[in-house]
Each structure stands twice: as structure tokens, then as C-alpha cells.
Design a protein around this nucleic acid. Structure first.
Lengths: 297, 297
DNA sequence: CATCTGGTATGCGTAGTGCGCATGGACTTC
DNA sequence: GAAGTCCATGCGCACTACGCATACCAGATG
């Protein structure tokens, strides 16, 4: 019989929320994850803890028993956390989440700016997709999310609490192509030249609009490599193995052998960079970091 | 900040034992595992908890703080366990650990015997290597270990507590070969016929004496397939893709196409089957299962 | 009844974690 | 300095956690 504190938190939240789905959105997980956590908890407790009903979940007697202990355990955990972190250095911590290419193109600028403007702030970062970052934000595991969106820039999702969203900059999607070869010496290409191009894309989950390939091309694109890592992508392009899309700000950090080209013959592809945070008055450190993100661009 | 109860148990045991190594053997882990658990615990607590000294480990102030809370948390966990299992059915549970091929050749017999002789006993089983089973036994996560040993049958390991070990049966190692083909119609082979045979072995960790290949053959054996699974092994043999060693008791459950042959020209290879349990007077359920194991053979 | 709208379970694929094995470095003891 | 402690760590493997997509189920609504 072995419990992790996350499992106990799940139990508590399910008890408080009355359903797996609600608990999931409170905790920043998907419903699937909560369902499995619940099943695992029952397995490790050796008893049925949840009574699944058509309108949600209620705790069985065994579940209520465990809940009682879970609350005291979680209190102890919180107390321990309190005591231990109290003795540590009191530097302000801001947890930043951002879309993957932000790490290369704007994180260094943000950190550099903060190092002089607000050296007492410690920034930790993590990467993620837009939905993952929004979940993390609502769950309180990050303080700021740096996102991209494509037009039309509707308010991302309709869940509550409404997030405080602020546009930072509109940027243009460009084509990353080998400096030598087919497009050598050019500064732009026509979209018709791309229909049969070999693309280097991100692994897609069939739900996302296929990152890395120019949007709206007719037919099925010819994807020759897939990788999540930007350095890999760019080195593949430099090696002449394909082309990929790049945000315009990334042209500042392209390795030798890769050129950024505009694409003509179609309307500009605009990507908006924006920040999201929970509503209400932010802590001063968060404001400081938001300012650094805005001005680093 | 997220703690699993195993991590807290590790903390407590390290505090009580005074070293990672001692805690490891108490808890049935390797030293390596404890070292990593400790590092992970420090990472998740965000503080240095252990002071590594040349003669062991002592807790830092932060470690002592967490230890205090860990004890109360573990008490709550134990209390929860108590309450929940108290309301469950009071069937005796015996946890059996055994070497891999025992599952096929003797577990069915043991369970059948128990079903009539002691139907109130619930038996759970797991497989493992001899050292893993001995660790589990000492750690209290299994009640009985069913092991094999090869001569000389020395007392397995010298650690304390001394285990209560009882031989069950001596059995002979045989050769599993395709019924048709090179050895068709034979009941025995000479060891010289095996020097260039294609072997189907278990994946070896270079520390074990290479299971599945006849021991003591000159030269390096020609291993054509490796698998841990007995059914796979036997089906490969049946298909004529190689030969392997089998314990003599398994000849009762060989699939069609596989024959068990004696090996001549060398002394019999004897494998002893034995049971191990912690010393002292065993619970009645354990005695019952031990008796079933002995008499099922 | 058909359908829709809440809910939970589950197959699948992937990234991450836990752990054993082997080894290496630091320190103590003889 | 040789041997015996101890802890840390690279490697490989199996397992787990989780997200996505989908299936399924019960009650409300047409």
C-alpha cells in the first residue's frame, strides 16, 4: 500500500469537485489522467474508493476513510514544505511556460534583460503546446504562458477562469531553406514553387495543423523528416535535406547554410505572440517578467 | 514538492540505519536505488537532506525537519491501511515468489492442491531471479521464495537475517530439442553432439551463468535466439530453430514437436529446488503453502 | 425512439522514471 | 599502499504516466 501525494491530491480534489472531469480541469490534468490515477489509487488501496454515477463520482465508505487520512497527510506535506522552504533563500520565483521555438528566439533576451533589470528574480521555464500550457496555467504550476496563435485570434478557449491575455507582437512566418541549392541567392519564393518541396516537420498528433509545413498547400505535403528539435531541423535544412517553416524572429539565430525566405503569391502568414496569466493583480515578480518579455521583442 | 510514501520510507530508513547501503538491504533495494531515491527526494524537496560522510550518511537540519513530518505521514498511511483493510474480507494472503519456469511447471499443481486443502488461502505470485527474490523476502514483500540452485548448494548468501531454507527436490537438467530433425527418435544425446548446436538462451546479464545453454561446453556457444519467455523458447525449439535446456519437470508440459533428451558423456546436471522464508515461526497460511509446494512435486 | 449531452473507461503511442548492474571516486583502516 | 568501506553514476531495460482519440453508458430532450 503505497500512495504518492499527487494521488492523494487527486482523491481530495475528486471528493471536493464531485467528478473526475471537474477535478481534472482543476488540477491541470486531462480527464483520462484522473481516471487512471483513480484506478491506480484503488488498486494500491485494495478497495473500491469511488462510486461512479452517471452524474459524476461519489466516494464509497472506504474512499471517505482514506480521504480523512489523505487530508491530514497533505497537511503534513504542506507543513513540511513550509518549514523547509522557509529556511531557503527568499528569491522571487517566476515559472514561465512557452511554445517550443520561444526558447531559442526570445528566452535569452528575456533573461538578459531581467539579469540587469531585476536580478533578484529567478525564472524557471518549461516548454509545451498551447493546451498544455493553458492547463498548467490554470492549475497554478506556471505563472506565465507565452503562446502563439494564428488568425483569427479568438480567445483561445472558453473555460473559466478567463485568462488575462496580452498580445506581444505579430510576427511573420517565413520559409527556412538551404542557402545553396534550388533557392540560392533568393530572398523570396513563390508559393507554387513549394508544392512538391521536401518538408521537415514536427511530429504531428493529427489534431494540430501540422507544424513545419507551409499551411494551405494543395495536396498532401511530402514530409521527409520529422523532429521536434529546432537545432535538428535547422541542421537538416542546412544539409539540403528539406525546407521548413520558421518564425521570422528566428532568422537572427539561423546557423550557416540556412536562409529565411519570404513566401509570395499568398497573403502573409501572421503568427501572434502573446502572454497569458491568471486574472487579477499579479505579483510584482510576474509583472516584471511580463515587462521583460514584452520589451525583449 | 511531491513525495511518494516509498520516498519517505527511504528517508526514515536511512535516518534509522545511518547509511544508504544499510537502508537498501533493509528495504530490499540495491544501494544504487537508494542513492537515486535520495537524490530525487532532495530534488523534490529543493534542499540538501543528507550529509554524505565517508562512514555513511547523516541528516541535515532540513532532512531532520522532513523526517519529523515523514514519520507522522507514514503513521497516517499505516492507519489508513489498517482501517481500510480491516473492513475487507479476512482471507489469509500468502505472497509467493519464484524462479521463472516454476510458473509453468509447479504453480498449477500448488494452486490445485491448495484449492482443496486450504481454500481460504489466497496466493499471489511474482517471478524473479534468485537475488531479487531474496531481497524481496528480506524486505517483506513476499512470504515464500521458490528458488533453484546448482551444486554445490551453499547457503546462497551470507546476509542476515539467516533465512530458513528447505530443499524440496533435486531435478535433472535435460535438453529440449525438436522431435524431428537431427535427434529424431532419440532419447539421449552425447555432449559432444552439442558443441556446435544452435542455442536458444535467456538474455544474460553477463553475471549469470548463461541460462538455456548446456553448461560447461567448450568454446563460445552459438546463440541464435534469446528470449525470457518459456513458451517462445519451446515454440522456437518445436520449429526446429535451435535447442535449449529444460528442467526435467517441464517435460510434462512440452508442446508437440519438442522432446526432452538426456545428455550423456558428462555427470548429471542437478538442479535443486528449494523454498526460503524468513526465520521464526511462520504464520499458518505460510506453512500451508509450503506444504503444498513440497507435496505438489 | 433517436439523439444529444453530460459523464467515465480504455487502446495506443510516447516520454519519462525507477531500478539493477557494473564501475569509479573518495575516504578509512591496516 | 592495499583492501575495505562508502556513495555516485553511465547504461540499458522494463514499466509507468499521460495525452489523444474513441468507446461506452445513463439521463435529458426532441
Amino acid at each position: 500500500m503505497d500512495f504518492s501525494s499527487t494521488a492523494l491530491r487527486v482523491l481530495r480534489q475528486v471528493a471536493d469537485s464531485g467528478s473526475f472531469t471537474a477535478a481534472a480541469s482543476q488540477l491541470g490534468y486531462t480527464q483520462s489522467a484522473i481516471s487512471r490515477q483513480a484506478a491506480a489509487l484503488e488498486r494500491s488501496a485494495g478497495a473500491v474508493l469511488f462510486e461512479r454515477r452517471s452524474d459524476g463520482v461519489r466516494l464509497t465508505p472506504a474512499g471517505l476513510t482514506l480521504l480523512r487520512h489523505a487530508r491530514t497527510i497533505l497537511e503534513s506535506v504542506a507543513a513540511a514544505e513550509q518549514e523547509i522552504t522557509a529556511s531557503a533563500a527568499p528569491t522571487a520565483l517566476v515559472r514561465l511556460g512557452m511554445f517550443p521555438s520561444a526558447g531559442a528566439v526570445l528566452l535569452p533576451g528575456v533573461l538578459a534583460r531581467l539579469a540587469t533589470a531585476a536580478p533578484h528574480i529567478t525564472v524557471t521555464t518549461r516548454e509545451g503546446t498551447t493546451p498544455a500550457l493553458l492547463r498548467a496555467l490554470r492549475a497554478g504550476s506556471i505563472d506565465i504562458a507565452v503562446l502563439t496563435s494564428r488568425p483569427p485570434h479568438r480567445p483561445s478557449d472558453g473555460e473559466s477562469p478567463r485568462l488575462h491575455i496580452e498580445p506581444v507582437e505579430d510576427t511573420e512566418l517565413l520559409l527556412g531553406a538551404p542557402t545553396t541549392g534550388l533557392f540560392a541567392g533568393r530572398t523570396a519564393v513563390h508559393v507554387d514553387e513549394l508544392v512538391d518541396a521536401p518538408w521537415i516537420a514536427a511530429p504531428s498528433t493529427s489534431t494540430e495543423p501540422l507544424l513545419g509545413v507551409w499551411p494551405g498547400l494543395p495536396g498532401r505535403p511530402r514530409i521527409v523528416h520529422t523532429t521536434r528539435d529546432w537545432l535538428t531541423k535547422l541542421q537538416l535544412v542546412a544539409g539540403g535535406f528539406g525546407v521548413t517553416t520558421i518564425p521570422s524572429r528566428m532568422s537572427a539565430v539561423l546557423p550557416p547554410g540556412v536562409s529565411a525566405l519570404r513566401v509570395q503569391g499568398v497573403p502573409q502568414e501572421v503568427r501572434r505572440i502573446l502572454t497569458a496569466r491568471l486574472p487579477g493583480r499579479p505579483e510584482p515578480g510576474i509583472t516584471e517578467v511580463l515587462r521583460a518579455v514584452t520589451s525583449a521583442l
